[in-house]
Design a protein around this nucleic acid. Structure first.
Length: 412
RNA sequence: GGAGGGUUGCCCGAGUGGCUAAAGGGGGCUGACUGUAAAUCAGCUGGCUAUGCCUUCGGCGGUUCGAAUCCGUCACCCUCCA
C-alpha cells in the first residue's frame, strides 16, 4: 500500500467529512479495516445514485479492506427523515425482505460476497427482534433528545411535523453500527453526506457503550451541473439492473451527460487513472465527446461487463455516427413483429406506442406533428402513414423518436 | 377531545357555479441552432375508433339545465387549544 486509500478517495472526490483524518489514514495503512455502508431497502434494484457508494466500497476493497453491505431491512420499515420533507411510504415486510435479497444479489456483482471476504448483512436480523424495554435501558439512555432535536435533519421536519417512528431512525442506525462493531469489528461507516448526523450518532454510541473510537466518512452528494440528483432522470431512475434498464440505455445515460460534469463523473464512476482523466477532460469543444464515450464505456463495464459495454458502444456508434459503416445495432432495444401484420400494414402511431417510444397514441400523434417521428431515418409527416413490408431493410425497420431514441422493429 | 385551515394535472400553484381539459411557473417532449453537450429561440405537454366523444380538480352521495367551484358525508394532512 504505497498510496493510502484515503488519498485515492480524496483525489477522486469521495470525501466530504471525516471524523479523524489522521487516525483513519493510519488505520488504512496498518490494518484491514472492516467498513460498512447501509443501503435503503425501498426498491428492488439499486440505481446510479447508489453507485457513488459502491465505487467507494470497491476502492477500499481493492486496497485490501473488508466491505460490509448492510441492507436496511429493519430501518426501511421506519423511514429516514433526513433530507425528506414527508414521511416515507410504508412497505410491507414481505416486500422489504424481497428487496433485500435482490439488493444483495446486485451488490454481490460489485463486491463479490461469494468469493471474497465481503459480507452481506441485513439489519432486520437484529432490529426486528429487539425488546423495546431492554433497548430503551441499554441504548436509549445514551441519546439526548435535546441534541437530536437540534440536528439539522430534524429541524426541518419539526416545522412540518415529525412522526415518532421517524424520530427513532437515527437511534436505530446508530445501533446498527454498534451491532456491526460487535459482530464484525466494523470500525468505519461511510455514507452520503446527508447521513453524517446519523453516522456520528453511531460513533458516539460505540464510544459510550464500548469505550472505543470508530470512524465515519461521508462523500458529497452528487448533483449534475443542472442541479438534478445523480441517477434520476425525468423518465425514471437509472437502474443498475439490466432487466430494468438495458445496457444500451445505460450507456446512453452516461454519454448524454453535461460537459461540465464529465470530470467529476470520470473520477467518481470509473477506475481510470487521474492523469488519463486529466487528458480526456482537457479535450475541447466537440472533442469532449471522446471523454464521454470513455466514461460511458467504463461505467457500463463496471455494471454490465465488458461484452455488454462493447455492444452498447458499437450500437451507439452505428446509430449516431453517420460516416461509419458499422451496422451493429444489436444493443438497441427491439420489439418483434410478425410479418403478417406488416403485410396488412401497421399504423406508424400504433407501432410507436406499441414499442414504448411513445406512451399513447395521442403522444405519438403529437410527436409526428412536431416532426419527431422517423422510420429508417426518414421523417414521417402523414398521421395515417402505415408500415409495410416495403419498409423493411433486411429483416428490420428502424424507428426513431426525436433525435436520440431508437428502437428496432424486427420481423419474425 | 375542541376550534380553524387544507387536499387541483408529473411537481409547485391560481381558480370559489357556465367563457375551465382548468391561469402561471418548474419539469419533460419536439423543432431550429449544435457536438448524442450547454445556452438560446419557437411549439407541444389527459385519453380515444378524433372537426366529435370520454375521463380528470382526495373518496362517495346530493343541489342545479350546468359543479374543481354550493351542500352532506368519509378519509388524510396542517395550525392553535387540551
Amino acid at each position: 500500500m504505497s498510496d493510502n486509500v484515503f488519498d485515492i478517495l480524496n483525489e477522486r472526490g469521495f470525501v466530504a467529512q471525516v471524523t479523524d483524518e489522521e487516525a483513519l489514514r493510519k488505520k488504512f495503512a496498518t490494518e484491514q479495516v472492516t467498513f460498512y455502508i447501509g443501503f435503503d431497502g425501498t426498491a428492488d434494484s439499486l440505481h446510479a445514485g447508489s453507485l457513488v457508494t459502491i465505487m467507494a466500497m470497491m476502492h477500499l476493497q481493492k486496497a485490501g479492506h473488508r466491505p460490509l453491505g448492510l441492507i436496511g431491512g429493519g430501518t426501511t420499515m421506519i423511514g429516514d427523515p433526513s433530507g425528506k420533507t414527508e414521511l416515507r411510504q410504508m412497505l410491507t415486510q414481505e416486500a422489504i425482505e424481497a428487496n433485500g435479497r435482490s439488493l444483495h444479489a446486485q451488490l454481490n456483482h460489485y463486491l463479490n460476497f461469494d468469493g471474497g471476504d465481503a459480507i452481506p448483512e441485513n439489519n432486520a436480523t437484529w432490529l426486528l427482534e429487539l425488546n423495546y424495554v431492554t433497548f430503551l435501558r441499554d441504548i436509549g439512555r445514551h441519546f439526548s433528545v435535546n441534541r437530536m432535536l437540534s440536528a439539522e435533519a430534524y429541524k426541518q421536519r419539526l416545522e412540518r411535523g415529525l412522526n415518532f417512528i421517524e424520530f427513532n431512525y437515527q437511534i436505530l442506525q446508530a445501533y446498527d453500527y454498534l451491532e456491526l462493531y460487535r459482530r464484525y469489528g466494523c470500525t468505519l461507516q461511510m455514507g452520503g453526506d446527508d447521513q453524517w448526523g446519523n453516522i456520528l450518532a453511531g460513533v458516539d454510541l460505540i464510544r459510550r457503550v464500548e469505550g472505543v473510537t470508530v470512524q465515519a466518512l461521508t462523500y458529497p452528494l452528487l448533483t449534475t451541473a443542472s442541479g438534478a440528483k445523480m441517477g434520476k432522470t425525468a423518465t425514471g431512475a437509472v437502474w443498475l439492473d439490466k432487466e430494468k434498464l438495458n445496457s444500451y440505455d445505460y450507456y446512453q445515460y452516461w454519454v448524454n451527460c453535461d460537459d461540465r460534469d464529465v470530470e467529476k463523473l470520470l473520477k467518481t464512476f470509473t477506475f481510470l487513472p487521474l492523469d488519463e482523466i486529466q487528458r480526456l477532460v482537457a479535450l475541447q469543444g466537440a472533442e469532449i465527446r471522446e471523454a464521454k464515450r470513455v466514461l460511458a464505456y467504463e461505467a457500463t463495464v463496471i455494471t454490465h461487463g465488458e461484452a455488454e459495454a462493447h455492444k452498447a458502444a458499437e450500437t451507439a456508434q452505428a446509430a449516431f455516427s453517420s460516416g461509419t459503416s458499422s451496422n451493429d445495432l444489436s444493443g438497441m432495444p427491439s420489439t418483434n413483429i410478425v410479418s403478417s401484420r406488416l403485410e396488412a400494414g401497421v399504423g406508424v402511431l400504433e407501432i410507436f406506442t406499441e414499442t414504448g417510444l411513445t406512451k399513447s397514441n395521442g403522444e405519438a400523434r403529437r410527436l409526428l406533428k412536431q416532426g419527431g417521428v422517423y422510420v429508417n431515418d426518414t421523417r414521417i409527416t402523414d398521421v395515417h402513414a402505415a408500415l409495410s413490408l416495403a419498409d423493411l431493410s433486411g429483416t428490420e425497420i428502424l424507428l426513431r423518436a426525436g433525435k436520440k431514441k431508437y428502437h428496432r422493429l424486427i420481423v419474425e
